[in-house]
């Protein structure tokens, strides 16, 4: 009995463990169906998943304070389009400047979202829905891309090589960049006062306010971080795919949110761990890469299977958490 209690207590502490089990199960199934899948594709999963991973880190911060941001992919496309246009015009040639510019643009839009959401008291879903409409509509304006897109010839070779053709310990810089962002987010959320305040605001805003936390400032900060991560993701996108256009990544913000929820982040705020988010993001990237290779019917039913798997994983996660919570209560003899 005692042993059981500690096991379930452990499960409660680590809500992402059931998800890890689901991920392992899926991997096993796919590996049986497509022999050698893991050996062939692990690098592609990491590469394709890293842009989403970066956005997930920002989304985690926003979800933690009980807010949401569905303008991330619009910001991604906008930041990429502006930076790509400037590089095409020859204004910026330096790779680092590109990344700095992307982060700045993203942070700016994120901050606007945050201010409207906190000081303007407009619901986050509405604000970010509005900004995503606006920001995406700016891209085909004549002063930006017009009807053109950014294509490889407009980018410098150094920039195009920066993330894909440089490797460290066998992994391209693209993946390392995501790793760095994850580490920074972990440090920020777990070891700084401001980071802990994000959790405090999300789980109990009034209590946090009593303790002297400036609610609105924290909310604006969370949105700014989310915007910045989306801006960074835009430049990563530009460097990885060497192209960006008005419609880039449309609708993908939902997969960012899905990855966070899969990872056990609460959409009402206050709970969520970076480790869970990393697993969630990997899972989404894995589903994306595995389904076309499974050769189930034609490639058009990817969405169908993606939906079922997402639903299955999310619900299983909930059920497992419920069981562990019940066991926890039983263990306490209440």
């Amino acid at each position: 009995m005692k042993k059981g209690k500690s096991f379930y207590a452990f499960l409660i502490e680590h809500r992402e463990l059931p998800l890890l089990a689901v991920l392992a199960l899926l991997l096993a199934v796919v590996n049986v169906r497509v022999p050698g899948y893991l050996a062939n594709s692990w690098l592609n999963v990491l590469k394709n998943g890293s842009i989403n991973m970066v956005m997930c880190c920002g989304m985690l911060c926003v979800l933690l304070v009980g807010s949401i941001d569905i303008s991330t992919t619009a910001v991604l496309a906008f930041a990429g389009a502006v930076a790509g246009k400037l590089m095409g015009l020859g204004v910026i040639q330096n790779t680092f400047l590109m990344f700095a510019l992307g982060i700045l643009i993203g942070a700016g839009i994120g901050a606007i979202n945050g201010v409207l959401m906190s000081y303007g008291r407009v619901i986050a879903l509405i604000v970010t829905l509005g900004t995503s409409y606006i920001v995406r509509a700016l891209i085909p304006m004549n002063w930006l891309l017009g009807m053109n897109k950014v294509n490889p010839t407009q980018l410098t070779q150094a920039f195009k090589d920066s993330l894909i053709n440089h490797e460290l310990f066998g992994l391209p810089f693209l993946v390392w960049l995501a790793v760095i962002v994850v580490i920074l987010t972990t440090l920020f959320l777990n070891y700084t006062r401001t980071g802990r305040n994000l959790y405090a605001v999300g789980s109990n805003a009034e209590a946090a306010q009593m303790r002297g936390v400036h609610l609105n400032k924290i909310r604006v900060l969370a949105h700014t971080i989310c915007g910045a991560s989306a801006g960074l993701a835009g430049i990563m996108w530009l460097a990885f795919y060497a192209a960006i256009e008005k419609g880039s990544a449309t609708g993908d913000e939902m997969f960012t949110i899905a990855a966070c929820v899969l990872g056990g982040v609460s959409v009402t705020g206050g709970y969520g761990k970076i480790s869970g988010v990393v697993i969630g993001a990997l899972m989404v990237a894995f589903i994306d890469s595995a389904i076309p290779q499974m050769q189930i019917g034609n490639s058009m039913i990817t969405e169908f299977i993606k939906g079922i798997l997402l639903l299955f994983a999310i619900l299983l996660n909930v059920v497992l958490q419920r069981i562990s919570a019940k066991q926890d209560l039983a263990g306490r003899n209440i």
Binding site: A258, I301, T302, F304, G307, I308, L311, I314
Partner: peptide, 8 residues
């Protein structure tokens, strides 16, 4: 999730 499912 159900949206993806219905569309698929």
């Amino acid at each position: 999730a159900t949206q993806l499912f219905f569309r698929g």
